[in-house]
Write a protein that binds this DNA or RNA. Structure first.
Lengths: 193, 193
DNA sequence: GTAAAAAATTAAGGTAGATTAATTTCTATC
DNA sequence: GATAGAAATTAATCTACCTTAATTTTTTAC
């Protein structure tokens, strides 16, 4: 069933009764999006947070010079969303795009508030997710400051195994903060060993 | 009184009864640390999260080449802590150092767990803090990817007004991810306008 | 299955920011 | 208030990574 994955995921951090599971599931909406379609574009208001149950998303920003910078790849069991826009209900600055045909489970802001009210344990669940995301982001900041492009590439391959098989190389470059041309040079060097 | 600032801070996000305020305050410990002393060093286990009620801290990492990278400056009303170490109770990788004589209010892990149990509203409070920190970190990642050093410097000056008067310039460089020498060049260019 | 478009590779030349090192200015301590 | 150490500045040289552009390979769409 389509909700097994998310329930398994939730149960890693909090224990739910069957009744609580039902409340949770009743607040989720399933959405299918095809490759190259967008879940969100800059200027829109992010109405929900999305859990990937199948497929792959990327979340990215396009800067003033028109260059894309990837904030996150979200494969199965990851959450994606423009947190700023979702929390403030003000216009987003990020794109969220499907890189494969993708199925997501979405919860909108009103439903999430209801969920917190009816099953307060979920405050804890989302706090834990956030803590983990926070630590991961802090590591990324430190690595962007201290690592060379080559080291960041190695780290990416270690940390997101398999993702490089699912997304175009130029997007990995956009995640690492280098040009596709330079990533190609790094890969050549690596292959030689 | 020493707890006014933190109560004011908490009240921005959740409303507490006087009894709940008392519980919260009873779980805090005041600590004074002198300039150049450390709240935490790598290898130690981070036992608590610290709210700065007076003074200024920096949180930083020293990489393999011995170079310092600053994760955060924390002045009055900011929280500091090695989240990874605090959550997992495993060895920290960060230094937390006082840049001025500083007073912090600390809560240790056991007390925080008690707080969550006795005043569940605090789950929400720390979730909100985390959400804000998460958004700020995401912006920093994007800016590190898309901005030149000069743009990042301008952004820092805008976003942390006054901080540049309180911390040595070389630490601002260590926050921006550039050398002190190059920051000096940027400042000279800026002064010319 | 084929044409067109997109992605990846390669290579030459260029630049933002690093490195090194010398000099000046600031700040801490006795 | 003199002195030592730290911080900041300046300048010359160097390098990791970018830009541009041409070529090859892979993917997409009819």
């Amino acid at each position: 069933m389509s909700f097994d994955l998310i329930l398994k995921n939730v149960s890693r951090h909090i224990a739910l009764t069957p009744a609580e599971e039902d409340i949770f599931i009743s607040l989720l909406r399933t959405k299918e999006i095809s490759r190259r379609d967008f879940l969100l574009r800059p200027g829109e208001i992010s109405r929900c947070e999305s859990f990937v149950s199948k497929g792959c998303l990327r979340m990215y920003h396009v800067d003033d010079k028109g260059v894309e910078h990837i904030v996150l790849f979200a494969v199965e069991e990851w959450w994606a969303g423009d947190m700023y826009s979702f929390l403030t209900q003000r216009p987003a600055s990020l794109y969220i795009e499907a890189l494969e045909d993708t199925q997501v489970l979405q919860i909108d802001k009103a439903s999430l508030d209801r969920l917190y009210a009816e099953v307060p344990k979920f405050e804890r669940f989302f706090r834990i997710l956030l803590q983990n995301a926070f630590v991961a982001q802090q590591n990324r900041i430190l690595q962007n400051l201290s690592f060379t492009a080559e080291e960041r590439y190695r780290e990416f391959m270690d940390k997101y195994p398999g993702v490089d098989q699912r997304v175009p190389q130029k997007m990995i470059a956009a995640y690492l903060g280098i040009t596709p041309e330079f990533l190609s040079v790094l890969r050549k060097k690596r292959a030689g060993r």
